[in-house]
């Protein structure tokens, strides 16, 4: 089930985690959608960060997918993303709060599923 691509570690965990500057407040979770900011400066990034940017060049991805493709633990990638959001390189879109799901979102999901 797990492909070679997912298994191969691009950057070892300790290296990915070593130089992370962790923001005080992190609102990044598994399904947070991550994209590259229009004015992002991709120069001078650490290897894990530049791998992450290369991954996001085609389309935005969830944090969870980023973690799987980078072969890094979710908890490390979560911090990596949070750091890059902090310095303006990445943008995120969080899932809406779901205590009372938005009816418009539910309709979108329903019509989308029915149309498949």
């Amino acid at each position: 089930m797990t492909s070679g691509r997912q298994r191969r570690r691009v950057v070892p965990d300790y290296m990915a985690a070593a130089r992370l500057s962790v923001p005080e407040h992190i609102s990044v979770e598994r399904t947070t959608l991550v994209s590259i900011a229009a004015d992002a400066d991709a120069g001078g990034l650490d290897p894990p960060a530049s791998h992450l940017l290369a991954l996001l060049r085609d389309e935005p991805l969830s944090v969870y997918e980023c973690a799987a493709h980078l072969g890094l633990p979710y908890c490390v990638v979560r911090l990596l993303v949070a750091g890059l959001v902090g310095n303006g390189t990445l943008l995120t879109r969080d899932p809406p709060p779901s205590d009372l799901p938005d009816i418009e979102i539910l309709e979108l999901v329903l019509s989308g599923l029915r149309a498949l």
């Binding site: 979770e29 598994r30 399904t31 959608l33 969830s62 969870y64 899932p95 809406p96 709060p97 779901s98 979102i105 979108l108 999901v109 019509s111 989308g112 599923l113 149309a115 498949l116």
Partner: peptide
């Protein structure tokens, strides 16, 4: 899907994974 991207998590249903479970269902 148009306008939304649906993420599916297959989560273990054992009570010993309670912590992970709480995290997964938050926002679902």
């Amino acid at each position: 899907l148009p306008g939304v991207v649906l993420y599916l998590f297959g989560a273990p249903g054992q009570t010993r994974f309670q912590v992970l479970w709480d995290e997964l269902v938050r926002g679902a």
